[in-house]
Amino acid sequence: MWRLVVRGALLLLAALLVVAMGARHLRPTPDLVAVVVGVVALRGGWRSGLGAGLAGGWLLDLLPPGSAVLGTSALTYAVAGALAGTLHRPGPASWLLVALAAGVTGASVTLVGVLAALARSAPVNVPGVLASVVATATIGLLLGPLLLRLDARWARRA
């Protein structure tokens, strides 16, 4: 139970930071929710990644500026979390695998956003999109091992 509370708190903190960075127009903006979802998926498998992605996406849908259609981000992050969960391996994970899980999650979410923009004939800033994915993977590389240890600590307490 405490593990779910900690994961939920991390997702809420990540979502709030993403919204705050977006409001301040910081570029490139790393997707911190994707980092948390990637770490949870790497630690728990595709089902955990799906659940964390669904919760994190709902948070982003509900926080301002939100989504035009409620549930869009939730479904996108759920699929991305399930995809990152395929990287799950028993035992400790290397820091490169953590960065890869965060990068896969961030790239999947970004790809859906790019495809949606192309479907509406909206312009896509390709260098900005690539910089955002690289920033997400870099934050995953830096914060991912810490988040893995935190999750493992709360798993032992449960």
Rank of each mutant, 00 (worst) to 15 (best):
residue 54 L to Y: 03
residue 46 W to Q: 06
residue 13 L to C: 11
residue 153 R to L: 03
residue 70 L to M: 03
residue 69 V to K: 01
residue 153 R to V: 05
residue 66 G to N: 10
residue 44 G to C: 01
residue 111 L to C: 09
residue 99 A to G: 15
residue 29 T to S: 06
residue 33 V to I: 09
residue 149 R to D: 10
residue 53 G to M: 01
residue 92 P to D: 08
residue 139 I to H: 07
residue 84 A to D: 13
residue 154 W to H: 07
residue 41 A to S: 11
residue 1 M to C: 07
residue 120 R to H: 11
residue 100 L to H: 05
residue 146 L to I: 14
residue 99 A to K: 15
residue 16 L to K: 06
residue 37 V to I: 04
residue 72 T to Q: 08
residue 125 N to W: 12
residue 107 A to H: 10
residue 127 P to E: 12
residue 77 Y to D: 02
residue 100 L to M: 05
residue 50 L to P: 15
residue 17 L to E: 11
residue 119 A to C: 00
residue 111 L to K: 10
residue 111 L to N: 09
residue 121 S to H: 15
residue 131 A to K: 05
residue 104 V to P: 15
residue 84 A to P: 15
residue 142 L to S: 13
residue 94 S to F: 01
residue 141 L to I: 00
residue 62 L to W: 06
residue 86 T to D: 14
residue 35 V to L: 03
residue 101 A to K: 10
residue 54 L to P: 13
residue 148 L to E: 15
residue 57 G to Q: 04
residue 64 P to L: 01
residue 102 A to K: 13
residue 60 L to V: 02
residue 40 V to L: 10
residue 36 V to D: 14
residue 25 H to R: 14
residue 96 L to P: 13
residue 134 V to A: 13
residue 132 S to L: 01
residue 125 N to E: 12
residue 5 V to T: 15
residue 140 G to E: 06
residue 17 L to M: 09
residue 60 L to I: 01
residue 32 L to Q: 07
residue 152 A to T: 01
residue 86 T to Y: 14
residue 75 L to H: 12
residue 133 V to I: 14
residue 14 A to I: 04
residue 53 G to C: 03
residue 80 A to M: 07
residue 56 G to C: 02
residue 130 L to N: 11
